[in-house]
């Protein structure tokens, strides 16, 4: 078989392209401002076309979703109703339940989120990557007062934080992302632990910070700690403790936590327009 002679031009072109790619990755990792602006500009430019396409294709996507997820949604709904019923029964029969229930009700009241200014935003898109499913897009941006790192809640509690807000749209990084860490404490205690995501449809984890002596029970509500360096205001419900595992080596309690915030089938979310007291907040340290 005669093998075509390949010119060195193609190899040179490839080398240049790879060099450009690595340079872009490197600059992006360092937070190079023009690249962030390029992303925002491209989002703004394409948005009108995406809106038109969305009008056309949304019914197709909705039909597909109802076909593919109809049964699972019904089952999930029934399961959640059962869990909620059990949880409420548990609450009223447990000592100190009234205080905790009051705290829970405070968290569920989305009209008055601890006195913080809020803005409601429509979810405009889900993640467009198979490898990073922990993103949703909302239709509000910096022109609405949204800033990087602000907390996002849905019915039930915290679901994520703002990431790379554009002028009219923003991304929300969900708390199910394993890279996200949030300072939390159980209602009624002062022990602050670090809560991490466990992946899509998986519980959250608190692996560090809760000593074995801490008085924490299954069913307790975990809320944001609101510490000085946290981007989140304190007292927002994050999850309910499902299981407690004692780590006898580190003398800590590891908690498995079910998120209280609704993460599936969302149409709208609420952004808390809260700026942390300290501006030196790390990107992932909450």
């Amino acid at each position: 078989m005669a093998v075509p002679q390949r010119s060195s031009g193609s190899r040179f072109t490839l080398a240049i392209l790879l060099l450009i790619s690595v340079t872009l990755i490197s600059l992006d990792a360092r937070g190079y401002e023009p690249l962030a602006n390029l992303r925002k500009a491209s989002t703004a430019i394409l948005q009108p076309f995406r809106n038109i396409a969305s009008t056309v294709f949304d019914p197709i996507g909705d039909a597909w979703k109802s076909l593919s997820e109809g049964d699972s949604l019904e089952k999930e709904n029934a399961l959640l109703r059962g869990q909620l019923s059990e949880l409420l029964d548990y609450r009223v029969t447990t000592e100190g339940a009234v205080e905790e229930l009051k705290a829970l009700r405070t968290q569920l009241d989305l009209e008055n989120l601890g006195g913080q200014e809020t803005i409601v935003a429509e979810i405009t898109a889900r993640s467009v990557s198979n490898f990073d499913p922990y993103i949703i897009e909302i239709g509000k941006g910096t022109q609405n007062g949204i800033k990087d790192g602000m907390a996002v809640v849905s019915v039930g509690g915290l679901i994520g934080r703002i990431e790379d807000p554009g002028l009219r749209t923003s991304r929300v990084r969900l708390i199910t992302d394993p890279n996200v860490n949030i300072g939390v404490l159980a209602v009624g205690t002062n022990e602050v632990g670090i809560l991490s995501g466990g992946g899509i449809n998986q519980p959250l984890y608190v692996l560090n910070g809760i000593p074995v002596s801490a008085d924490i029970e299954i069913g307790s509500i975990m809320v944001t700690s609101g510490s000085e360096r946290s981007p989140y205001p304190g007292g927002f419900a994050v999850g309910t403790i499902l299981e407690i595992v004692v780590d006898e080596i580190n003398l800590e309690k590891e908690l498995i936590v079910a998120p209280t915030g609704q993460l599936e089938n969302l149409e709208f979310v609420t952004v808390i327009l809260y700026q942390p007291p300290s501006s030196e907040v790390g990107s992932n340290s909450k």
């Binding site: 450009i20 790619s21 990755i25 390029l38 989002t43 394409l46 993640s127 990557s129 993103i135």
Partner: peptide
């Protein structure tokens, strides 16, 4: 490269990663 770069603009993964892979 262009195809990857375009989708990179809308992903949360680092800009240039898809461009590199696709090229």
């Amino acid at each position: 490269f262009v195809s990857g770069f375009l989708i990179d603009l809308y992903l949360a993964t680092p800009l240039g990663l898809s461009a590199l892979s696709y090229a």
